[in-house]
């Protein structure tokens, strides 16, 4: 046992991590979360602002579609929590994607609700909350990255050999 060496070399171990580290996997996870969440909010607002009572089957269809979107959103969260590493720079990009998607969804909701003329204020509040949460995530992602950059600077101490 004393003189044994690992059969896999370090480059082979790194190569084995490519799937986990692929940009495509990260983008896919973020897209699943964003689209699932935006879809669920959009459907909920659509349902809420219906001018009259809906037939039972239509309500069931709305409910099922919302559950479907929420399942995708939860799957996206699970991917980002335990399967796909989101590093600080990725978090910043993901947060901006989230903010753009929230702004787009919110704008569509507001325009649609104003045209329908029912429940406009409630939808505006929901849309504003959606954008606000996305904006908070952007700020947090930037702060996290800035803290890491400060720590990196403190550790290198301005040493040119350690600076990239």
């Amino acid at each position: 046992m004393t003189n044994e060496e690992p059969r896999a070399s370090a480059p082979e171990i790194v190569a084995g991590l490519h799937g986990t580290l692929s940009a495509r996997a990260r983008l896919r996870a973020v897209a699943i979360l964003v689209v699932g969440l935006a879809g669920a909010v959009f459907l909920a607002a659509l349902w809420w602002t219906e001018p009259g009572p809906l037939p039972v089957l239509t309500r069931v269809a709305f409910g099922l579609m919302m559950v479907f979107c929420l399942i995708w959103a939860v799957y996206g969260i699970w991917l980002l929590r335990s399967r796909v590493p989101l590093f600080a720079t990725d978090r910043v990009v993901a947060a901006w994607i989230g903010l753009a998607a929230s702004a787009l969804t919110s704008s569509l909701l507001v325009v649609m609700t104003v045209q329908r003329g029912s429940g406009a204020w409630a939808v505006i509040v929901v849309a504003t909350a959606l954008v606000a949460v996305a904006a908070v995530l952007v700020v947090r992602a930037h702060r996290h990255r800035a803290a890491l950059l400060r720590r990196e600077h403190a550790l290198t101490g301005g040493d040119p050999e350690l600076l990239e």
């Binding site: 590093f87 890491l148 990196e152 550790l155």
Partner: peptide, 10 residues
């Protein structure tokens, strides 16, 4: 620590 911080940055 420096390697970890840089890796965490991406």
């Amino acid at each position: 620590e420096l390697l970890v911080v840089r890796a965490q940055l991406g």
